[in-house]
Amino acid sequence: MKKVLLVSAIALFGAVNAQTFGVKAGMNISNLSNSEDTKALVGFHAGLFMNAPLAANFSIQPEVLYNTKGAKSDGMDLSLHLDYISVPVMFQYNATPQFYLEAGPEFSFMINSKAKAGGVSADVDELVEKFDIGLGLGAGYYFTPNIGVSARYVAGFSDVVKNNPDDAVKNGVFQIGLAYKFSK
């Protein structure tokens, strides 16, 4: 029994020690589906991540991000700004030590929603859903062991509008950013 506990403790220490933590930030280009008269809204994302190896070429990377999404009207001075705390869980295939491909779910929790027209903004929290789920697909490259770039597209599955009798309005966001891994 003592040997099993010792081996388990060593394995757990190795797994924790193999994890890498970091920060990331970048630009979001978002829009809403089923909105013919909208165009992309530029925003940002920023947050923390942990990368843990699962096998020789595979790892899992959960993240916690502040994410801005939304859209703006094509013809009028009107925009919808949706702020989320997002938790993507990316499964990564490390094609080389520097280059990876990733895919996984993203769970987003609404923290703020505003409609802006002209210079006036108004809360629209009662009109939008508080939870959004999507699927992210992306890639990244590390120039050094600590500094890299990433690109990801997240397609939303949830209707953003509460009690929507029409076709679902879903988030879609393209993200590009920088990542910094802390040294061990």
Rank of each mutant, 00 (worst) to 15 (best):
P88L: 11
A103G: 12
F91G: 15
N67T: 15
G148S: 11
Q92E: 12
A115Y: 04
V128E: 01
G75T: 13
G119H: 04
K69I: 00
I111D: 00
L135C: 07
T144H: 04
V120C: 04
S158T: 09
I133P: 02
Q98L: 04
Q61C: 10
D125K: 11
F13Y: 03
S8C: 14
S158N: 13
T144V: 01
K116H: 10
F13K: 02
M50W: 03
V7Y: 01
N163I: 00
G136N: 14
G177F: 05
E63T: 09
P97T: 14
S150I: 00
G47V: 05
F107L: 12
G134M: 07
G47W: 00
S30I: 01
G22H: 05
L135F: 10
G119I: 08
A25C: 12
G177V: 07
H45C: 07
A9D: 15
Y141C: 08
G172Q: 15
G47E: 02
A179C: 05
L32R: 05
V23I: 15
A15H: 03
V154N: 13
V4P: 00
N67V: 04
K130P: 00
L32F: 13
G134Y: 03
N34Y: 02
L54M: 09
E102Q: 10
S113W: 00
I133F: 08
S113A: 15
I10Q: 12
S108P: 01
F44A: 06
F44Y: 14
F131R: 15
V169S: 07
G177K: 00
A15I: 14
A71P: 00
N34W: 00
F13E: 15
S150E: 06
D123Q: 03
K39D: 11
N57A: 13
L54T: 10
D74N: 10
T20H: 08
A95N: 06
